[in-house]
Design a protein around this nucleic acid. Structure first.
Lengths: 351, 351
DNA sequence: ATTAACACTCGCCTTCATGGAGCGCTGATC
DNA sequence: GATCAGCGCTCCATGAAGGCGAGTGTTAAT
């Protein structure tokens, strides 16, 4: 998509813009006469036809058949969202409505679910939220529980409220008392540090101070390393998939099935979201741009959210390419910001 | 549904049976001529027409329009599955295929997911599994972790492999040391008993031996009671909803949306499954019988599964009313039995 | 009771005609 | 050279007409 199309004169741009706006509103191909009237320009339908022919040559619009009006192509939408679109900032009202959906006392999981629901309800499309990376949050506590022979349950309390369980399979057996002492040792050394720092510390100690410690403490370090080694649960929360059934441009049953299956599998959704995590602004995929062909007629609007200035996740919506970008974009944008600050609020013990 | 229809003569029963079998196979209304030929009876089409008129009067079949063949009504299906159907028992082959899908080392959660997937793949419909009740399985271990002021994380290890976390909000504060001693006390008294027994024991002690214990042990009992008080997570695992998109008798978009939303909400699905938990055999809901009108054209086949003779959950499938009951019923039946025995296997620590 | 035969009823498909929306092109105008 | 009115043309959507086929209900004969 090299977009040599940038050098369109003002009139062509206006026409393209009104055409796409009209198509997004009504879902009908737009003809030259209507376009001439609604564009506000003082030109005749014939002139508009000439311009439209040019736009078609540039691949920005196309005619479904000889004598229908024109509809935007993927490139047309691209140009539209990149340089023609004027987003309608959400009113303070709307922001408050969204904000009231966040319960700062909820666990991260619940917060993600609520956000995802919120996105899908407000936009009437499918909402999705990538779980935040936890690498930089504080480890509050670490505990071991003996489940059976050589099987230990590691419990990580993160950030004072999040709890993660991990079952570890070990080479040798420890009794509960040994495990307890190991946990005490690790907690004394590590509590309060970020997971990232914890991991570094453990790896360093394993290398450096091997010989200076008794066997028990060595084992403790080993165990601790195992406990924090796993990645965060790699997951994404989606909601409102069923909204997509209502759009007739997605009426093809087979594609619809693929789409819904993608939501169940989550793998491809994850792939798409992860592509966006680097950007620091709202990002938009139109149609096949994401590389999946079952994405025909679908667009994705995403925005990363950050805590303390660091991007920790992405959220967004999926809907038909023919969506109201001017409404959806600011919603996604605001939601990302609000989620970020909801996560960033200092953990409260009140209540 | 009083079904005075039971007194059908043999011929009428044969005809109804072949009609429904034919309709299930082809999805086409069945006419008198075809029916006369395929039924195996030595009667003419005209005679068949007479019988069909009777069956229509009884409300067992109906004609979509004046001059099409007949299709079964809900009552027709009911009679069919109750007294006309001959199920095709699954071959040893198929049983082995299903059995190989169970990994006895998996956690209950994973086992449920696998079962649900299995059901949906084998039947090409939506599969669902009600989580088992845990009331009668052994409590292996109980642990407390102080999260913050008056907030305690209770960790229940059940059956040596299942882990449940519960956050408790308390009236007074304990330090970790106190919590540890309380856990020790409770474990010494309760480990190995069933959750049900544990709860009884705690309630009894709270009443009877109040005055004979020091304050700490009293608090411990109180805490333990809180920890095991909550119900099991009340949940159901579903899979393969998207299969339902492929059936043209469910092609109505609005109903389809309601159906998929029901799977997301899970509440109504749960209601249906819970209705079946009392029965000890395969149970079938046809069309609106379950009380939900968006269930038009859908049927549910369920079977309870039991561990050690006690029913602990239900599983089943949802699909179009026009499904191959003779294939689906034994599959659901066998899957329920296999899941029961997979859960009943003594917990193994090997690997 | 069973059945062959007949008339009749619908739904579905194809064909055909009609109307309308919209396009490209041309030639005139400024 | 840009703009525009006008013309002929293409295509879709709609609907009516008609034929076909499948299946029904009914009657009268066995």
């Amino acid at each position: 998509m090299e977009n040599a199309a940038i050098n369109l004169d003002a009139r062509a741009r206006t026409l393209l813009r009104t055409l796409i706006e009209s198509y997004i509103r009504d879902g009908q191909p737009v003809g030259s006469r209507t376009l001439a009237r609604t564009s506000g320009l003082k030109v005749s339908a014939a002139t508009v036809r000439n311009v439209m022919a040019d736009l078609e040559d540039l691949g920005l619009i196309q005619a479904p058949h000889t004598s229908a009006g024109r509809i935007p192509t993927a490139s047309g939408y691209r140009l539209f969202v990149d340089s023609l679109l004027e987003v309608r900032e959400p009113t303070a009202e709307e922001i408050r409505a969204i904000q009231s959906g966040f319960d700062p006392n909820a666990t991260t999981q619940d917060l993600m679910g609520a956000t995802s629901n919120l996105l899908s309800q407000v936009t009437r499309m499918a909402g999705m939220v990538r779980l935040p990376r936890h690498r930089n949050v504080a480890l509050s506590q670490l505990e071991f529980l003996r489940l059976g022979e050589r099987r230990v349950l590691a419990i990580l309390v993160i950030d004072g409220k999040e709890v993660q369980n991990r079952v570890l399979e070990l080479e040798r057996d420890f009794d509960q008392d040994q495990l307890q002492r190991m946990a005490n040792y690790l907690n004394a050394h590590l509590a309060g540090k970020s997971l990232h720092a914890v991991r570094d510390a453990l790896l360093r100690e394993m290398r450096d101070v091997r010989e200076n410690l008794d066997a028990m403490m060595l084992a403790a370090i080993d165990l601790g390393e195992k406990a924090v080694a796993g990645e965060d649960p790699d997951d994404v929360v989606v909601a409102g998939q069923t909204h997509l059934l209502s759009y007739e441009e997605l009426a093809d049953i087979d594609r619809l099935r693929q789409l819904l299956e993608a939501f169940n599998e989550k793998r491809e959704i994850l792939g798409i979201l992860d592509q966006c995590i680097r950007s620091d602004r709202v990002q938009i995929f139109i149609g096949r741009e994401s590389g999946l062909d079952w994405f025909e007629n679908c667009s994705v609007v995403t925005a990363p959210y950050s805590v303390d200035g660091e991007v920790v996740g992405v959220l967004g919506v999926i809907g038909p390419t023919r969506m109201s970008y001017d409404r959806v974009i600011p919603i996604v944008d605001v939601t990302a910001r609000l989620l970020g600050s909801a996560l960033g609020d200092p953990a409260q013990d009140t209540k």
